Structures are given as structure tokens and as C-alpha cells.
Amino acid sequence: MKGYYFLLCGLCLFGCSQPDQQKQLESERVTREYQKQLEAENSPILSEDSDTIENSQPNNLDKNGDVLETETELAPINISLPPPPAEPSETPTQIAQLTDVERIAKLLTAKSAEQRLAAVNRLYNLAAKQTLPDSALQRLINVFESDSELDIKNRAILALGQVCHPAVMMSLLSNLKRPLNDINLEAIKVLGEVGGYRASQILNDFAAKLAENNSNNAQAILSAAVAARQQILARGGMSPKCQW
């Protein structure tokens, strides 16, 4: 209040030397400045800018300032699988007339045993006249190794016997490494027809392992192996058409 008193005295002294209008304006100016000074002294610690900064903080923080984890609900994903391929419609008669080797080879996986057998027979005829592509040859080997029908397996073995390819010889020799109940006698017979000297040695070692097995199955396999080896040796250990 003492400061305010001195301020008023100053205004009175100043007014004595100025016109009335100027004294009034100057008095109002001094009063406004004094009011601003009082407001500045009594203002809160936080200014408008600090309030703005505080209010602008993200609302996904916890009391320690760490970001809160929020669960995001994912929309369900609907996956539509393509329909399975349609089964082949060719009849055995139609298959016997096909010339597209790739198409015939695909028929080896048909559900119908009649279609598979017709496809194997057709590949047997074509293999005697032309070289089968590797894809068709592999499908033929798959039939020999895994088809559920024995007659289809045996026809596949005969078809493979028409082909001079290392994969064929490997497949025929792998037959000797199977459990006795899974060994294919037709494959041993074909091995004797197309094999060379190396095949005769493998057959000899195979027969030696079966010599002391007196089961009917083992003796039947042993007889087939001995006959195949003798067939190879009868032609001097040479393959009739392949360079094994």
C-alpha cells in the first residue's frame, strides 16, 4: 500500500504541469502497469503454455510414463482352398491310344486301378520305341515302389526294363535291400535280364546272405537271385542293350 500511495502522489505532481486530458490518460496508463505488476506477482506457477504441454501428453501412458499395452482384435481370416483336381475321365481304351507321355504319366496316380494299369502298359509300349522324359520315368519308379496293386507294380518293372537309365538300375538294386516280405521277385528277374557284371556281384552277395534262411519266402527269393546272376554271367556279364 505504501508503494501505491507514492504512486498517487506522483500522479498528482505530474498532473499539476499537464493539461487535464493528458493527466487523465497518463493516470490510466500508470494504473494499468501497476495492475499488471500485481497480477504478475500473484500468478500461478504453471503458465498457459505448461498447461498445454501437460494436456498434450498421450493418454496411453501409465503413472511411470511407460506405454500401456493395448489388445488389438484381429479380424478373422477366411481362406478358401481350391477344389481338388478332377479325376481323369479317359477309359483304358482311350489311354492305349494316347501319345502324350506326360499326360500318360499323370494317369499313373489315378484312383482307378484300371486307368493306372492302362497307363503303365502304354508307357511300356512307348519306352520300347523312344526315350521317356525324366518326369515320366520317376512316376513309373514311384509305381514300382509304392502302388498298392501287385500286377501294376510288376508291369511297371517290365516298363522300367525297357529304359537304360541309372535311376532304373538303382531302383532294381534297392529292391534287394528291402525286408524279405517286401522284395519283389519280378524286379529280380528283370535285373537278370538287363543287368551287367556289377549287378551279378551284388546278386551273389545277396544270395550268400540268404543261404542259411530256410523259410519258404527266403528260398524263393534265393532261387530268383541265383537264376538272375546265372543269366548275367551266361552273356559274359554284359548288358544286352545298356551300359551299366
Rank of each mutant, 00 (worst) to 15 (best):
G192Q: 06
W244H: 04
Q94P: 02
N154H: 09
A207I: 01
A224C: 04
L25Y: 05
L7R: 11
G10K: 01
L160V: 05
G161Q: 02
S174P: 03
Y197F: 11
N60Y: 12
H165L: 06
A110G: 05
S27Q: 10
Q21D: 12
G196P: 07
A211W: 01
P44K: 01
V190F: 01
D147T: 04
N42M: 15
A187N: 03
N64I: 02
L173N: 11
L98T: 00
P92D: 05
S80A: 09
G10M: 06
K129C: 07
L11N: 10
E39T: 15
E193A: 12
A234K: 15
S27L: 05
K23T: 15
N154L: 02
A224D: 01
I157R: 02
G15K: 04
E54M: 13
A167Q: 14
N42K: 15
L126C: 08
A220F: 02
V143C: 05
I95C: 00
Q115S: 02
F206D: 11
I221D: 06
I221W: 02
K106A: 03
E193G: 11
F144W: 07
N213Q: 03
L137M: 03
L25V: 09
Q231V: 07
L210F: 00
E149V: 14
S47R: 04
E26K: 09
E87R: 05
N142L: 03
T131L: 14
A119Q: 01
S89R: 15
S223Y: 09
Q35T: 04
I152G: 06
E48Y: 08
N59Q: 12
A167V: 08
V194N: 08
L185K: 13
P19I: 06
Y5R: 06
E90P: 00
L158S: 12
S17R: 14
L98S: 00
E69D: 13
K241S: 06
N78K: 14
L8K: 09
S223G: 06
I77D: 13
N216I: 13
E145W: 03
P92H: 01
T91I: 05
L25K: 10
K111D: 07
R29H: 03
D147H: 00
I188V: 14
G195H: 04
F14G: 13
Q24C: 08
I188F: 05
V67L: 02
V101Y: 07
G10P: 08
A118T: 07
K189Y: 11
D100Y: 12
E71N: 13
G195P: 09
A228P: 07
I79W: 06
L233M: 10
V190T: 14
N60G: 04
I221F: 13
C12D: 15
G196E: 07
P88D: 10
C242T: 07
S80N: 15
W244T: 08
M169C: 02
P84E: 09
I79S: 09
L191K: 01
L61S: 07
Y4H: 10
E145Y: 00
A211S: 11
E71C: 04
E33R: 10
L25C: 06
G3I: 07
Q22A: 15
P85C: 03
Q201C: 02
C242V: 05
L98Q: 00
L203Q: 13
